[in-house]
Design a protein around this nucleic acid. Sequence first.
DNA 1: TATTGTTATACTCTATAACTATA
DNA 2: TATAGTTATAGAGTATAACAATA
Lengths: 149, 149
Amino acid sequence: MENQRSIESDLGYLLTRAGMLVVRATNEALAPLELRTRSYTALSLACDRPDGVPQRQVAADMGLDPSQLVAIIDELEQRKLVARTPDPNDRRNKLIVATAAGRDLCAVAARRSAEVTERYFGSVDPAALDQMREMLGQAVFPDTDRILR
Amino acid sequence: MENQRSIESDLGYLLTRAGMLVVRATNEALAPLELRTRSYTALSLACDRPDGVPQRQVAADMGLDPSQLVAIIDELEQRKLVARTPDPNDRRNKLIVATAAGRDLCAVAARRSAEVTERYFGSVDPAALDQMREMLGQAVFPDTDRILR
DNA sequence: TATTGTTATACTCTATAACTATA
DNA sequence: TATAGTTATAGAGTATAACAATA
């Protein structure tokens, strides 16, 4: 990893550029649903846990400060896509729970999001893609035993 | 690519998270040099072409609108790390040329940047890393014959 | 004391439109 | 008329500090 011919073969540069590309394309693809990449990701994380997930956990999963989640969840809640429900075990927590409407919209959004990924990575070997997911997962969530897919 | 267990195995999500991580860590690593990921990337692109590169080309390579480059190049120019030199062939162009000081600082920054990449991806198989670079390069620069490394 | 969600604030990045000088 | 660089502006994302309620 020592020598590189130019910044254009630098992994950090490529990751940043690819991330920008995907976020932009996903924002466009989700615009008709009045979702952005951010709000879709938060909604999706709520849909992954039917019993609800503390707001702080959503922030951690998104790599954001908890304060940045407030407005995102506010909007999803106003649209009745999620609810902030009190956690009976710890009243400091607010569990973010997806509503039926939230799950329905998330399913539509997930399809559109997958089309974006397909556009950029559809032509490459699925095994190589899985390997990339694994590498990125290790970088983003270290010391986690992850079973992808 | 159709079904996925959760957003956490979604390639777009992983790319975005990994990109955030690398940009943040690189910003920290470059802070002592008074560079950020953005200004380092622009400087590096200038260093890659000793004869200079039109400002518009730097913007394209970074995936930015040309207007977003103005302030970045302004700062590099004030610090005498690059110069805006007139293009004799087309006086609309300003060729961004790295100075000797710019090349020196870029070399230091490149080492620090590589340490960041090493931190997140140092433990994975170099061949798999090359394959990831190839996949990302294809996504970011399609219809380009690229020889990486 | 420590933690969850929240408010507030400042800064950086993103996205567009319009202007100027050159072609 | 088209293109390179620039200015201006609004909106989205990032980074911190501090506060109330709860543990």
